[in-house]
Design a protein around this nucleic acid. Structure first.
Lengths: 114, 114
DNA sequence: GCAAGAGGTTACCAAAAGGTGACTGGTCCA
DNA sequence: TGGACCAGTCACCTTTTGGTAACCTCTTGC
């Protein structure tokens, strides 16, 4: 994506495609937490106060459908344990999240107009 | 934004701050068009088929409030002409949009899982 | 044998985002 | 003098997103 090419990228706007995968009240926070390590479902729920099981399930499933994160089950002594982690593909999203985050930090700290 | 620091960036998630400024059905397309040159209101409306005057007005005003674009009026022989263009501050958003767009292109073309 | 924690699902409701169609006030052109 | 273009506004409606509370199955620990 170097030079503008309005006709092609106007309706199938690639930025909008990417936004579709990451927009949602909790998705960026989930992706932020998963940078460090995998999380279990209830662990995410506890770590993100205010999120309901319903919405958390939805956002996780959407991230999974987009291939960004992976759901992994393991049966440790009979108990089902699920964890979520980045896929290799999902990690390719991190530079874009960093770029957004850098700008977001500046934007949050701006008061007057520039 | 280099190493994760979950506690600080979880609730004031900078990525979410940035998303707040660019999410909207038409904002990324407006920002795409404005890369090339300033646009008039009705020119944007014509170039983005499907957008209504109401929603276009809203999205433009939000971009303006966030300081990303600038509204400029000029009275050419009595007729009001308005155009919208990036602010210098708004142009600092372009690298992040490029990063998102690059990923979005890959994401749009992916079929199976990776 | 019953609560507590794991990992959810379901029905229902509220708020936000986006769309429709009518209308405004100004100017230019035929 | 009336239609078209400029740049919007307004009331109303639909769709999408997020939230609440109840419920479910399974297993461990008391």
């Amino acid at each position: 994506m170097t030079g503008p090419d309005p006709q092609a990228k106007l309706f199938d706007c690639p930025v909008l495609t990417a936004l579709g995968a990451i927009s949602g009240k909790w998705k960026t926070r989930i992706l932020w937490l998963l940078r460090e390590r995998p999380y279990h479902f209830n662990e995410l729920k506890r770590t993100l106060p205010g999120v309901s099981a319903k919405v958390l399930t939805e956002q996780i499933q959407q991230l999974e459908e987009d291939g960004v994160i992976i759901r992994r089950e393991d049966m440790r002594n009979g108990v089902l344990h699920v964890d979520y982690r980045y896929s290799a593909y999902g990690r390719t999203l991190i530079p874009a999240l960093d770029a957004l985050g850098d700008w977001g930090l500046i934007h949050a700290g701006r008061d007057g107009r520039q």
